[in-house]
Design a protein around this nucleic acid. Sequence first.
RNA 1: GUGCCCAUAGCUCAGUUGGUUAGAGCGCCUGGUUGUGGUCCAGGAGGUCGCCGGUUCAAAUCCGGUUGGGCACCCCA
Length: 415
Amino acid sequence: MSVRPVRGTVDLFPEEFRRHSRVIDAARGLANVYGYGEIQTPIFEFTEVFARTLGDVSDVVTKEMYTFEDRGGERITLRPENTAGVARAFISAKLQNDLPLKYFYAGPMFRYERPQKGRQRQFHQIGVELFGVPGPSGDVEVIALAAQILDQLEMLQHCVLNLNTLGDTESRQAYRTALVEYFSDYKARLSDDSVARLEKNPLRILDSKDQSDKEIVNRAPSFDGYLTASASEFFSAVREGLDDLGIAYELNPRLVRGLDYYCHTAFEFVTDALGAQGTVIGGGRYDGLIGMMGGPETPGVGWAGGIERLAMLAEQTLPKLELPSPIALIPIGGVAERALKKYAFSLRAKGIPTDIAFSGNLKRRMQRAGRMGAKVAVIVGDDELQAKKATLRDMDTGAQEEVMLDNLVERLVEL
RNA sequence: GUGCCCAUAGCUCAGUUGGUUAGAGCGCCUGGUUGUGGUCCAGGAGGUCGCCGGUUCAAAUCCGGUUGGGCACCCCA
């Protein structure tokens, strides 16, 4: 039997999981403040849910999905992202009369990718979806929520908000045609990757990091000239909204999305503190998605954030995580142990972190108390039991005092 | 999927042009203290050198493959 975890997966032991938790807790807390209730959709869906919506040219669908046939012969896929799942849930429950709707989620996602720092095959995302708000205030709200979460994690100042518009369908169609026309002239000088993108997703060429591609890209037609008046107006309103809130951003015309259902606003919070995988939160508007899935035409806007990446950044920005130091109960002998278990029970009922070791002599239990960072140890042996007292030891100073057992819980609550 | 780099004790690492029983620090265990941790002192356990094969009288060291990891590309969160 192989005892190692599957490539690209990790075990999150408590210390590491706490780093995740504080990211999730901050996000969930603020999402609730904004009125985004938490939703949990299944981690697997019928394959079409993703295949249909993510586009059949996206890398996620063509080479990164965990797809299998279950015992009933259904084509199943482990979710590579959660927007499609939440949209499907919205359609399944026929919630179109309850708009607008706001959802927050946190959970595992699965993509068959080559693992590296900030990229695993099972990874975790937080995210929000806002359904039924067609105007730019929806975009502004979800971006504001993201910014405030980052701010609460004290990493907003280490991130740059990149902002772009993908326009409406009409704009994108026109621009796409113009790009294909332009790049086709340079086909011989483009990188192989970009030549392939010319057919599949010419917008992506704009994002190429290839040196000679970049030169060609620099002289490529810009989107501005192809934006319809209404798309342009929409984008201005988003920028105005962000300005009003004092949320800084940088316009990045090269910011495009790999997933086909995006339109209008695209944004990413990016940091340079994590190496190559610097996008910490990314999202945008996806007005066509729900209709494309067979639901009633419903606008949507949202984002997802990588918990592992956020947790890594938080390591740099937040103070070290400290565990509450427990009270260590240290019995000597079976009679004392029975007595102290009852005290542990009532201390814990009051929410006071309490440790009582299951075995070991006094020395070993003291060691354990020290290792756990206990601030006080309660020692009870035959001597103390007879006198109905306990010995309290201050683990920092070594000072000891005696307390009547009757007052023990009361005294410990004070500390 | 592509390129480059890496793999020695639980952890972080050293190991000379290939040469006898592979080392250090931290951690762990025992004792000094049969009712006192964290400090100190003394001692101890722990490694088929990732795995498979090859070269050689001899391989942790050289070569090939493989698995895992890191970085970049790709892609994205």
